[in-house]
């Protein structure tokens, strides 16, 4: 029996976290959750998940961007793939600092909410496999 993969869900929307947790657990993943950026980073450091699913707009409108940068700056979790999901499309004119500063947003995938369960599973699978090769 293969070792189960661990997914970290970071989102302030408890209902969405719950729904995604159900989908992921049903597909054999271990799920850990956090409801804001600070908790998300701490949980990532503690649990060292195989993949992080990160919301953008939490306590601050662009919190997810900074969380992603901080994850990349920590060596122990820097290589963990990040799926970024948001209700605001990436083309929005809202000022998300890393974008307006022209910085590369250090995430592997950028997705619009809601993500269909099958899409979610296939993307999680794909990025975990990619990170292990």
């Amino acid at each position: 029996m293969p070792e189960t993969k661990k997914v970290l869900l970071v989102d302030d929307d408890v209902d969405l976290v719950e729904a995604n947790k159900i989908v992921l657990e049903a597909n054999g993943y271990t799920v850990v959750t956090a409801y804001n950026g600070e908790d998300g980073l701490n949980t990532a450091l503690k649990e060292t998940p195989d993949i992080i699913i990160l919301d953008v707009s939490m306590e601050k409108k662009d919190e997810g961007f900074y969380v992603s940068q901080r994850i990349r700056s920590r060596p122990e979790i820097a290589k963990t793939p990040i799926l970024m999901i948001t209700a605001i499309h990436k083309c929005t004119k809202l000022k998300f600092s890393p974008q307006t500063d022209g910085e590369y947003l250090p995430v592997n995938e950028f997705l619009d909410k809601p993500v269909d369960p099958s899409t979610l599973i296939s993307l999680v699978e794909k990025w975990i496999k990619a990170s292990q090769n």
């Binding site: 209902d15 729904a19 159900i22 989908v23 209700a87 605001i88 809202l94």
Partner: peptide
């Protein structure tokens, strides 16, 4: 308008996800 769009879209996404879990028979 963007903010309003976000504040409408985010809960709708949640609602959809909650219902989808049920409809897809996860539970």
């Amino acid at each position: 308008v963007m903010l309003v769009a976000h504040d409408i879209r985010a809960p709708l996404a949640s609602i959809k996800s909650c219902l989808k879990v049920v409809l897809d028979g996860y539970l």
